[in-house]
Nucleic acid binder design. Structure first.
Length: 289
DNA sequence: AGTTGCACCTGGCTGC
DNA sequence: TGCAGCCAGGTGCAAC
């Protein structure tokens, strides 16, 4: 599930419990996730206070009071659950999947936060904050799509000369960071652009901003903002940090709708599903060119 | 350098 | 009901 809107939704759900709280104890129920946990991970976290909980692309970043940052990535199936301090405030009786509760943060004040991740593609790392910009994970990361920088001019510059299809270019985290399979499909549909079109073709040769680039930049921002406002999409049984379901999935226009009618006004096309670099792409061949 | 394909894992759904 | 096969939101790395 977790593309930028879902990670941002998780951040907002965790912030009230984590920001300002101290880690009293951290339970690790296995040696690692996608990567091994850092050496002495639990003991390095114990006693640290979380000064702020931020997000960069699909990464959650907890700023700690010793100058370190706890980096958390949800992979494909990671989720957090907050258990309130007061009994009954928000209790998950649901024990199904508890086998995949890999990390429990016990916080000052009595609340706890549990990280669950069946596929274990997620990971947690600990790095000094001032070294983050040069860290392997962040050094080559692209522009934040909801920030001020992303507009038609930048998109045209990023994609200029690229032969790769738009789908691949938009998924490339070193260009724009935070889009995933769902929102790339959705943004391209809104922009009326084919996922197969060469990325370079939305830039003009003279370097001026093309109408296509400006429209695509606008559609990327729009779909992400709408999804964040709706609390993410939460496919399958993935839940927000507070346990409720996100509603954006009801607003998918193409994703998961292969064979169905295109919802663009006046379009008579059908949504197709194709494979691009091994992953499903949903699009309408009639109105996306 | 730019791409593609595969690997990493488990679970859920479909169809026989 | 059982089981095989396919699919899934992400990323990193090896191979062309």
């Amino acid at each position: 599930m977790p593309e930028l809107p879902e990670v941002e939704t998780v951040r907002r759900g965790l912030e009230p419990a984590m920001a300002g709280a101290r880690f009293e104890k951290v339970e690790l129920r296995r040696a690692g996730l996608r990567f091994p946990f850092p050496d002495n991970f639990a003991s390095r976290l114990a006693g640290r206070r979380v000064e702020a909980l931020g997000r960069r692309a699909k990464y959650l970043l907890a700023d700690l009071d010793d100058g370190a940052a706890l980096i958390m990535h949800l992979g494909m199936s990671g989720s957090f659950r907050v258990n309130g301090a007061a009994p009954g405030v928000f209790h998950h009786a649901r024990s199904k999947g508890a086998a995949h509760d890999h990390v429990v943060f016990h916080l000052s004040g009595g609340a706890s936060v549990t990280y669950n991740d069946p596929r274990r593609f997620g990971f947690m790392l600990l790095e000094r904050r001032e070294a983050l910009a040069e860290h392997k994970l962040f050094r080559d990361i692209g522009v934040e799509p909801l920030g001020n920088e992303l507009d038609g001019a930048l998109l045209a510059r990023l994609f200029a000369g690229k032969a790769a299809p738009l789908k691949a270019a938009l998924l490339d985290q070193s260009l724009i960071a935070g889009l995933g399979n769902i929102y790339v499909c959705e943004a391209l549909h809104r922009a009326g652009l084919s996922p197969r079109r060469a990325a370079g073709t939305i830039a003009r040769k003279d370097g001026a901003v093309s109408a296509r680039a400006a429209l695509l930049a606008r559609c990327i921002r729009e779909v992400l903002e709408e999804a964040v406002a709706a609390g993410g999409s939460s496919l399958r049984d993935h839940r927000q940090a507070d346990g409720s379901l996100g509603y954006f999935q009801h607003n998918f226009r193409v994703y998961g709708r292969g064979g169905g009618p295109c919802v663009s006004p006046g379009c008579e096309g059908l949504v197709q599903r194709i494979a691009q670099s091994g992953r499903s792409t949903f699009f309408c061949g009639a109105c996306q060119r």
